[in-house]
Design a protein around this nucleic acid. Sequence first.
DNA 1: GCCAACGTTGGC
DNA 2: GCCAACGTTGGC
Length: 145
Amino acid sequence: MNYWLVKSEPDAYSWQEQIHNHIEPWTGVRNHQAKKNLQSMRNGDLAFFYHSNVGKEIVGIVKIVKEAYPDPTDPEHKWVCVDVETVCPVPNPVTLKQIKTDPTLQDIGLIKQSRLSVMSITSEHWAILCRLGQVPTKYQQNKEN
DNA sequence: GCCAACGTTGGC
DNA sequence: GCCAACGTTGGC
């Protein structure tokens, strides 16, 4: 399985709304590299939910439950979305500041490609971020895969 | 195909 | 509010 990070501005769609909705289509991605990443996601992959602009921290974990399909918010049907399901909150949200000061996280996409809204995360970085966020072990991996 | 102008994202 | 990074548009 693969690990990912998806960004949302909490003013537009927040983690609280994600908890409430439980399963939600991840729509509105309008960048080719992000689209490619969406298309590489497989059912059961896990993703960090990051609050951009306001908060600037990793606040939760979601699971991909429906692979890429045409984004209903795109009238031209040329962009895609996936469905994500709430897995758990990150008990101790990991801030961008923390990530920037951690020597083991310097080559993470969040820093190197700050404008990309859907990116992959290595399993090593995933483990480090889970530890920093104090994510319970049982949520760090999807046992179904 | 190049590049200037402009728009957007997102951090500071 | 500013700006860096990056993407898009359109003239040539």
